[in-house]
């Protein structure tokens, strides 16, 4: 996804543009930009309201209050709280997958690509506790439509690990089973979710060495995996 050309670049760099607030003190914006931005404000408002009240406890009034828009504006963009949540979920997951993909592609070899990808994921989630909660915890509460998306999103990380099979010896390949990658991704995501539920989102990045060692061990053996995990 290309950065939103209507947003100031410093914001686009730090914060998912879809979730940034209307810049203070700017007026006389073209109508189209305001409309586009109202949607973003509603999504950010939803994330804040959920962080405060949980998904079930969140009402449209909470969302519009956090977004500082009218109820009518809400209904111009979304027909329900569920629909707003789906939009928010997709926005956050797209951003997260983008960050992970960029980090993974920028590394020199597969083990370091995995490490960079996990680091990017932890950094994104730790820096955005409301969004982390929205996409890793509340998504499961938000009804079947979102749960399906959540399952698919988790499974979408499987191919990053599967690519680690390329070029491995027969001996290593014999140790891997068809479900190895699913179990690695599931284990990693489960640990991250549990830390978020426990209110320890800000500390997520300290999990990096453990998660790198856990996920690389089946492919590299535990000694080499531990070495990559603990490199600076």
């Amino acid at each position: 996804m290309a950065p939103d050309p209507d947003l100031p670049p410093e914001q686009a760099a730090e914060y998912p543009p879809e979730l940034s607030r209307l810049p203070p003190g700017r007026h006389g914006l073209p109508r189209e930009f305001v409309a586009h931005n109202q949607r973003e404000r509603l999504i950010a408002g939803l994330a804040e309201a959920i962080a405060e009240n949980g998904y079930s406890g969140t009402t449209i009034a909470h969302i519009t209050r956090h977004a500082a828009v009218s109820r009518r504006t809400f209904y111009e963009h979304f027909s329900s709280k569920d629909e707003c949540f789906v939009a928010a979920y997709d926005t956050v997951m797209t951003k997260l997958r983008e960050r992970v993909g960029e980090a993974f592609d920028g590394a020199d070899d597969w083990p370091h690509a995995v490490k960079a990808g996990i680091a990017a994921m932890l950094r994104f989630l730790a820096a955005e506790p409301n969004l982390a909660r929205l996409c890793m915890v509340e998504a499961l509460v938000a009804g079947p439509v979102v749960v399906e998306r959540y399952d698919a999103a988790i499974q979408s990380f499987v191919p990053y690990f599967q690519s680690g099979r390329e070029g491995r010896s027969q001996e290593i390949l014999a140790r891997l089973s068809p479900t190895t990658e699913e179990a690695l991704v599931g284990g990693m995501m489960s640990l991250i979710s549990r830390r978020i539920i426990a209110g320890r989102t800000a500390e997520l990045e300290i999990l990096l060495p453990d998660l790198v060692e856990f996920t690389l061990s089946p492919y590299l053996g535990s000694d080499e995996a531990a070495r990559v995990a603990r490199e600076g």
Partner: peptide, 15 residues
Amino acid sequence: PDTLEETIVGGLFWI
């Protein structure tokens, strides 16, 4: 790793 058991159990439950 300190979190090994959590990741193993999380992986099993995910499957």
